[in-house]
């Protein structure tokens, strides 16, 4: 018993599409305490979603997943038995998606979805339970929502419903993969408010995947920054925003501030992230880094632990 909601040590994920080896997640360490919200932030292709799917052990077929430790609550996620894993999905780790419309079976009513989830949790009298769950995510007209087909509801309504269904199983960890990206601004704010309230009332810890620093700042206790399959910096939101240590984190925060109108012009980051197919010798960010040292391209940079639980993968702070 570690008392942690989620503990990952040394997670590596290797994809093998058509013989091209892609190393999409590299020696990743993360830990979440109960009731905590951790933001996982990075640009598209940085491995955020693959990390999320790995937690549910739904990595793509033919992928190779290795880790020293991967636990959610009391559950060991490094099982290989499909039946055991299936029992863990939803219960140990739940997941919410970017596209709420696509997450529902278009041929079935919401009531059907609710019944499947609740009956599976051993709640035979599912209808009142479903109404209670929907009410908890601020859905007033529960009867109408339950009787509707997914295409008849708005994106925001479906996202609330999905959140309610995922929380119904009391998972130790909820992975929320860009849950507000596809929604318009007002609905996004409502959903974010819902998340802020849920973290007070629910036991679950949230892994909030996003590419938006502002969203992460408004919600998360701590933030982990991912770049090209690696976590390059992790710390509390305050630490990161006041004093970003990794040059990439600094660039992300500068961009976010610029978009908020605090800076004159948008800072630019030259170059592109390295290919995830190629073997890597040094720091992944070295080719774009303005403060590159000589050692940066020679050997892989280890995670350097700092005070206050902070960690950074950068030689400037070694």
């Amino acid at each position: 018993m570690t008392g942690l909601a989620l503990e990952i040590r040394g997670l590596d994920l290797m994809l093998d599409p058509l013989g091209r080896r892609l190393h999409v997640v590299r020696s990743l360490d993360l830990e979440l305490r109960r009731g905590e919200v951790l933001g996982l932030i990075g640009e598209s292709g940085s491995g955020k979603t693959m990390t999320g799917l790995s937690l549910l052990r739904l990595e793509p077929e033919g992928a190779r997943l290795t880790a020293e430790i991967m636990r959610a609550g009391e559950a060991d996620l490094l099982q290989s038995e499909e039946a055991e894993l299936r029992a863990l999905r939803g219960r140990a780790v739940g997941m919410i998606f970017q596209d709420p419309v696509g997450a529902f079976n278009p041929a079935k009513r919401i009531a059907w979805h609710a019944r499947q989830v609740l009956v599976r949790r051993g709640i035979a009298d599912w209808r009142p339970a479903a109404e209670r769950l929907l009410a908890e995510v601020d859905i007033a007209d529960t009867a109408r929502v339950l009787g509707a087909y997914p295409h008849q509801l708005s994106g925001g309504m479906l996202q609330r419903t999905l959140i309610a269904l995922v929380l119904a199983a009391n998972p130790a960890v909820v992975v929320a993969d860009e849950p507000t990206t596809n929604l318009d601004n007002i609905v996004e704010q409502q959903i974010l408010r819902l998340f802020r309230r849920l973290r007070q009332t629910e036991d679950a810890a949230f892994l909030f995947i996003t590419h938006d620093m502002t969203v992460a700042a408004s919600l998360c206790d701590r933030i982990a920054v991912m770049y090209a399959g690696e976590v390059v910096e992790i710390g509390t939101t305050a630490q990161l925003f006041e004093d970003p240590l990794h040059p990439y984190t600094a660039a992300l925060i500068a961009t976010a501030r610029a978009l908020e109108g605090e800076a004159e012009r948008l800072p630019e980051l030259p170059g592109e992230p390295p290919s995830i197919a190629e073997p890597r010798t040094g720091c992944a960010f070295a080719s774009r880094c303005a403060r590159r040292l000589e050692g940066c391209t020679l050997a892989p940079v280890p995670m350097i632990p700092l005070e206050g639980g902070r960690r950074v993968r950068c030689l400037l702070h070694g």
Binding site: L58, R86, R89, M95, G102, N105, A107, K108
Partner: peptide, 26 residues
């Protein structure tokens, strides 16, 4: 390849259930 298939597996539904109610039905 649809998102709702992944979503169903995330909920912990079994392969046969997902195949019948989600994939085959649609």
């Amino acid at each position: 390849r649809r998102a709702y298939v992944t979503s169903a597996r995330v909920m912990g539904f079994g392969r046969a259930f997902v195949f019948w109610h989600y994939v085959f039905r649609n």
